[in-house]
Design a protein around this nucleic acid. Structure first.
Lengths: 207, 207
DNA sequence: TGTACATCAGTGAACGCGCGTTCACTGATGTAC
DNA sequence: TGTACATCAGTGAACGCGCGTTCACTGATGTAC
């Protein structure tokens, strides 16, 4: 009954599934209009619900942003893990695949990526966000191990930090349009992917 | 007379030097409270002037932010050039010195750095900002040449992009507190500087 | 199976806030003659 | 050197806006008996 009503779209006093709907609409606003347009009222409007309703699920705007960032980190971890697992067993291949997945996530979810990494209005004491971030660091540490295995490095932490900084910086510069001129100067048909591959190929870390 | 009045602090109807004062106060607000607190009215308040006065000099908030970013880029270029010139003639030393200066600028001017690199509300068609950014790219291209000279690389553009991404990502992760755990695990007395040096030392680009 | 009742989730009006922007104004400056 | 006048820079009141938050309320749900 309830499910039917929801599916058919009959308006009901109790939405029944509002929290995920609010998160989905918030993500749409974030990606389409930017974080400055993401307010409690805007999310409520998009979900077709009164402006005071979100407070029941998120408390305040920081709560909504934090939960949304948690969703982002969960997807981010999954993307990194999937790329790693699909890359076979060579540590170098795995690290490169994760680097590509890292940048690819930033390109396909720019709003979410910036929300996740600019901690400004996030409450990292929220369990959902804390857990999701822990999982993401766990996934990233896969690079750490990969690099260490590859190099037998005495400084795996340092090498992994270098890898992280490299792909993170590339993603940020790309999102901010700072690499447009360079990408524009590449041979026709080559884009950000080609530049990233070239950057990864030209870079040797740990040796 | 006018100068005296200004120095002594006698309030005058015509401020006479309001634009730089507004920029300086805006920077203070940016670094102390964050970009979301930087409004035309807040800058006017800090400068002790009516809230409508800034419009005479900047038009709107985008204008103020763009002029402030221009100031930031000018200082940024100067810092990079100074580091390069102080580093002697070895291309590797020069590149490393510029990398350190890049991160150092981000650490000492975090608000400005983020304003400069997150284009969000900047109007890059403003001559002041456009010129300042051009000068900064010019300074950064010094790395390009340094790497090319060092490696005789066929892909200087790619190698320079890798350098840029590395230091930019390091700076961003540092500002966002993402490296705190790693820095905390370093030997006592070593901080972000040591980690950056290790990262730069462990990284070979172009080879 | 029914009934009473506590709890939960959403409503809609209201409040105060700081913002950008506009406006008529006014004091100061600089320039033409 | 003086005077008239245009222009510039800052004032302060006012406007509308969207925001977060609060509040009494109400409809729906679930649980105890």
């Amino acid at each position: 009954m309830d499910k039917l009503a929801t599916v058919v779209g009959v308006p009901r006093y109790h939405h029944g599934d509002l929290k995920p709907v609010l998160l989905a609409q918030a993500e749409l606003i974030l990606e389409r209009t930017g974080i400055q347009a993401l307010t409690l009222r805007a999310a409520a409007r998009a979900a077709g619900v009164s402006h005071a309703a979100p407070a029941n699920h998120f408390g305040d705007l920081t709560g909504l942003l934090s939960e949304l960032a948690a969703v982002g980190f969960a997807r981010f971890s999954a993307a990194l893990a999937a790329a790693r697992d699909a890359a076979g067993h060579d540590p170098r291949d795995r690290a490169k695949a994760m680097g590509r997945a890292y940048v690819d996530f930033a390109r396909t979810h720019p709003g979410l990526f910036v929300l996740m990494f600019r901690a400004e209005r996030l409450d990292t004491t929220r369990p959902a966000l804390r857990d999701a971030m822990d999982a993401a660091w766990q996934a990233l540490r896969g690079v750490d191990r990969a690099v260490a295995a590859d190099r037998g490095a005495s400084l795996p932490r340092t090498a992994a930090t270098a890898c992280w900084a490299l792909v993170h910086g590339f993603a940020m510069l790309l999102l901010d349009g700072r690499l447009d001129a360079i990408i524009g100067s590449l041979p026709i048909g080559e884009g950000a992917d080609a530049l990233l591959d070239a950057v990864l190929a030209t870079t040797r870390i740990g040796g």
